[in-house]
Amino acid sequence: MKETFAELVRYLQNPVLTKDENLSFSYRFQKFSHLLLICVITGLLISPVFVLIEELGWINMEEHAMEDLMKTYSKPIVFFIAVILAPLFEELIFRGPLTLFKSTNSFKISFYLFAIIFGLIHLSNFKITTNVLLLTPILVLPQTLLGGIFGFIRVRFSLGWSMVLHACYNAILMLFTFAAGNSI
């Protein structure tokens, strides 16, 4: 786990278009498992900031798009949207094109740009207010970091792996959400 985390950090500091040559499924599954755990831990470490922001009254999480989704659709439909549809389309849009950028500089720029845009697109989950705009870097930090992690596994393994990682991460979030009895 420590080795995977260190490799991820090095990669995020200097992303390069290099596939991992180890094609062993057990090796890839182990890396995948480590990355999934890193994603979950990242989310858990950032979530107290969101609780504080809501407690201070800066953002009303009742106006989050997931709230509307949960009120409009059944849990199985919400689960399908969050765990199947969103990862499929988001990975095709935000990680799919990464390998088209062959030069070192254009790849690095595109890698960071796609991660940032992936984060920013999730700002649409909030009702846009002055506070939301002011807090944008914090509000999209989890998705931006995840965009980097999903980009890492996409480049190192394949687009399919990033789709599955994204889906598994969303599935864990949804299961926590359903278990807690609220939507976000």
Rank of each mutant, 00 (worst) to 15 (best):
S24R: 14
F5I: 15
A171Y: 09
H122F: 02
T18W: 00
L123Q: 04
N182A: 12
K2V: 12
L45S: 09
P137Q: 06
E54L: 08
F29G: 12
S183P: 03
E90T: 15
I128V: 13
I184E: 03
T99V: 15
I38R: 01
G119D: 10
I121H: 01
Y11R: 00
R156A: 04
F107R: 02
L175F: 07
T136V: 11
L8C: 02
I117C: 07
F107S: 03
P15D: 07
K127C: 04
A65L: 15
F126L: 07
T42E: 04
L133D: 08
V155S: 06
F152C: 13
F32C: 06
R28P: 05
I53S: 01
K19C: 06
I59P: 00
E62W: 01
H34D: 14
L133A: 13
F101L: 05
E90Y: 12
L8Y: 02
L141W: 00
A179D: 10
A86W: 04
I172M: 00
L173T: 11
F114E: 00
L113D: 00
K2R: 12
V51W: 12
F101A: 08
N105W: 12
P15F: 05
F157S: 09
A6Y: 15
L85M: 08
Q13H: 10
M1E: 04
K127D: 09
T129N: 07
N105Y: 11
N125C: 02
S47P: 00
T104K: 14
I81A: 10
T42Y: 02
S158R: 02
L88I: 08
L141P: 03
F176P: 01
L52E: 07
L159E: 03
K2A: 11
R154K: 14
M1G: 02
L23P: 01
M61H: 05
I77K: 10
F5D: 00
F118S: 09
G147M: 05
A179N: 11
L85W: 10
Y27H: 15
K31Y: 06
V51E: 13
I84R: 02
V9I: 15
V9F: 13
K71A: 10
I84Q: 03
V155G: 05
Y27A: 04
L123C: 06
Q30C: 07
M174K: 12
I184S: 09
E3N: 11
L123I: 14
F50P: 02
L88S: 05
T42A: 14
S26F: 10
S162T: 10
Q30L: 13
F32N: 06
L134I: 14
L165Q: 01
S103L: 09
K102T: 13
S106V: 15
L100R: 12
A171C: 15
F126I: 05
G96A: 03
L113Y: 05
H166S: 03
L56P: 09
L98T: 05
I109T: 11
T130H: 07
L100Q: 14
T99S: 13
V83E: 00
A86Q: 10
N22P: 08
A171R: 07
I41M: 04
G147S: 06
L17A: 09
L133T: 13
I149A: 03
L37K: 04
A82Y: 03
G160F: 08
G148D: 00
G147N: 05
